[in-house]
Amino acid sequence: MATVSVRITPAKDAIVSQQVFDECVTVPASDASGAVSPVAASAGVRRNVLDMFSLDGKVAVITAGARGLGYSMAEGLCAAGLSGIAIIDLQCDLGERACEQLYLQFGVDAKFYRLDVRDDAAVQGAMDSVVRDLGRIDIVILSAGVADIVHAEEYSPEKFHRVIDINLNGSFFCAQAAGKLMIAAGRGGSIIFVGSMSGSIVNWPNPQCAYNSSKAGVIHLMKSLSAEWAKHRIRCNSISPGYMDTPLNTVFEEGYFHEWKSRTPMGRLGQPEELAGCALWLASDASSFCTGSDILIDGGYTVL
């Protein structure tokens, strides 16, 4: 498309540097019908939007990826063309089976690494192994997490520490280890934290002060790293689910399920696969100008 140069002249009473208006702005010229494409007017290069979701040639790491939310997001990324995926989990049988299923379904090179995310030295060793085995790390999804329903006055220090150590400290150790490798490689990357709507609101009537505190910390950790690492082209964002139908929630009393559904405008729990589309968007070039964002997927719970 042909372009024309336009010079803008400020009003006489405008209090603004003349230099700003001395710059030439290039806009697309109209076609034979006189129409101007709004897309071409705002972008230098037109791309097929579906192509922007491709993950061809990229490698992802997913903590707690052997089942539940982590595995569903792994499936979503593999469907977009990953060349390799690392599943990190504590449960060997589930982890190995997850890798077999991903390979059979998508043909992706899938490897399992047993890891406790609370062990910072082991975390760095696992990330180094991923680079050695799969060649690189482009995407990290941090979905390892635990929850308790315990009244605050009865919370033991050990149980409180466990939730904070896995949910918050573990997220930092994994992000730090992967971030170092991404910075060294110089290609940038996408780190996706799994927060929770509980990091933004107190989801009554659950007594879960440790979980809520940990997820609020995860979201702010994500925002802090997004600011620090933007210069390295590492984008950090978080997905914050509402009540999801996962093994993490099935251990709680059935009475809570009715309460959760009644307080959710959509009247149901979310399904694990309903996070996959958002994870793919954040992992891909489709979200290349998005960093520091917390995306709520909660059936409308937090709008009330």
Rank of each mutant, 00 (worst) to 15 (best):
Ser213Gly: 12
Val218Met: 14
Tyr211Val: 10
His220Gln: 15
Val163Phe: 13
Ala184Cys: 01
Phe173Asp: 00
Pro207Trp: 09
Met197Pro: 01
Ser190His: 04
Gly179Val: 10
Ser196Arg: 08
Phe193Trp: 03
Gly188Glu: 04
Gly179Lys: 08
Ala178Phe: 05
Ser171Cys: 12
Ile219Gly: 06
Ile219Glu: 13
Gln176Thr: 00
Leu168Glu: 09
Ile219Ala: 15
Ser196Tyr: 03
Ala178Leu: 03
Met222Ile: 03
Met222Val: 03
His220Ile: 02
Ile192Ala: 02
Gly179His: 11
Gly189Lys: 04
Lys223Asn: 11
Met197Ser: 04
Met222Phe: 01
Ile166Thr: 15
Ile201Ser: 06
Ile219Arg: 09
Gly217Ser: 12
Val163Cys: 10
Ser190Tyr: 08
Asn206Trp: 12
Asn169Arg: 14
His220Ala: 01
Ile219Leu: 14
Ala177Arg: 10
Ala185Trp: 07
Phe173Arg: 02
Ser224Asn: 15
Met197Leu: 15
Leu168Ile: 10
Gly188Ser: 09
Phe172Tyr: 14
Ser213Met: 13
Cys209Ala: 15
Cys174Phe: 11
Val202Gln: 01
Ser224Phe: 05
Ala177Glu: 09
Asn212Pro: 00
Met222Tyr: 06
Val218Leu: 09
Gly170Leu: 08
Ile183Met: 11
Leu181Cys: 06
Ala184Pro: 00
Gly189Asn: 01
Gln176His: 15
Leu181Glu: 03
Gly170Glu: 02
Lys223His: 12
Pro205Met: 10
Gly195His: 03
Ala175Arg: 09
Ser196Val: 02
Asn206Leu: 05
Gly186Tyr: 13
Val194Arg: 06
Ser214Pro: 03
Gln176Phe: 08
Gly179Phe: 04
Cys209Tyr: 08
Val218Glu: 06
Val218Tyr: 13
Gly199Phe: 01
Asn212Ile: 02
Arg187Asn: 14
Ile219Phe: 00
Gly170Asn: 07
Cys174Trp: 06
Asp165His: 04
Gly186Val: 02
Ala185Asp: 07
Phe173Trp: 15
Lys223Val: 11
Gly217Val: 04
Val202Met: 03
Tyr211Ser: 13
Ala210Ile: 06
Ala216Ile: 06
Ile166Phe: 14
Ile166Asn: 12
Gly199Arg: 03
Asp165Gly: 00
Ile192Phe: 04
Trp204Thr: 13
Val163Pro: 06
Gln208His: 08
Arg187Ile: 01
Pro207Gln: 08
Gln176Leu: 04
Gly217Lys: 07
Met222Thr: 14
Cys209Val: 14
Asn212Glu: 12
Arg187Glu: 14
Gln176Gly: 04
Ile166Arg: 13
Ser171Met: 01
Val218Pro: 12
Ala185His: 11
His220Thr: 08
Ile166Leu: 08
Gln208Met: 08
Lys215Phe: 04
Gly199Ser: 03
Pro207Met: 05
Leu168Asn: 11
Gly199Met: 00
Met222Cys: 14
Ile201Leu: 10
Ala178Ser: 13
Ser198Cys: 12
Gln208Ser: 13
Ser190Arg: 05
Gly170Pro: 06
Ala175Phe: 09
Lys215His: 00
Ile183Gln: 13
Val202Gly: 10
Ser200Asn: 08
Asn169Gly: 02
His220Met: 14
Ala216Glu: 06
